[in-house]
Design a protein around this nucleic acid. Sequence first.
DNA 1: ACTAGACCTAAAGTAAAGTTTATGTTTTAT
DNA 2: ATAAAACATAAACTTTACTTTAGGTCTAGT
Lengths: 146, 146
Amino acid sequence: MKYSIGQISEKFNLTISQIRYYDKEGLLPNLKRVNGVRKFDDNDVETIFLIECLKKCGLQIKEIKQFIEWTKQGDNTIDLRLEFFNKQKQKVEKEMQELNKVLDMVKYKCWYYQKAKELNSINKLEENKKDLTPSSIQKLYDKAHS
Amino acid sequence: MKYSIGQISEKFNLTISQIRYYDKEGLLPNLKRVNGVRKFDDNDVETIFLIECLKKCGLQIKEIKQFIEWTKQGDNTIDLRLEFFNKQKQKVEKEMQELNKVLDMVKYKCWYYQKAKELNSINKLEENKKDLTPSSIQKLYDKAHS
DNA sequence: ACTAGACCTAAAGTAAAGTTTATGTTTTAT
DNA sequence: ATAAAACATAAACTTTACTTTAGGTCTAGT
């Protein structure tokens, strides 16, 4: 199955110029063309999926390009690629821990402003904060700051 | 307790120029100065903690500034601020789901290159992929693509 | 009193990741 | 055959979040 750049754009929710930019940066090394027009096959689709994945890992385009270069170089870069993904795994796991703390803080703030809304006053909340804060909510705050 | 910009820089692992930039952008509205030199109190520290938190939520500086403006305007923005944090909560929860998928993909790739390393060949792995892939690993791949 | 180190500002510069623009070609539907 | 829609390129432009630079001022220790 072959796709046009417009179809890929819809499939992945990327702009057409983004896809052209990735191509220009060398992230789609096997992309074929017919009369100058890009034709994406399932392999290219999988590559774009991987690019999206690595972007969500927080990698820069040039770092993704480095990985793509390794795939082009064949079996003698297998070790590098394994190491690369082991590192990403660690990074993402750490990132998720971090996001969990952020979420605790956000949940605390949701409680805080909900309570402020009920009291119709930040001051009243602040004055009686100790009494008004359930320990389950205090825990969120403490975890976020740990 | 009062802190210098250098101490804050260390505490939060931010560069001094980053902190000055946040101040310039209006993110630290209550920051005091003595002879032009910034002095951070516990309130400012908590604000910086919040800024860091909101940056990790994926917010831009100007969006964070908007929130800070609301805090300056007092009780009549409580509703806006509650809505703001409820939205952040949704966003972060969605982001964590997304990251979970990313992690599944990364774990799959770790397995993939570990196996390729054992076989010393991407081709051999690809040829016998169906037989070589345990269902637990296949699940990771499928979940990542779902 | 002096000096090193920490602090200050304003303005210019930078990197990343695209977007926009201007112009031209290809494809598709009638 | 033609016209609209989709595609192409190169080059300039944009945004965000800083960093760097240049030239001063403040503070702390001797």
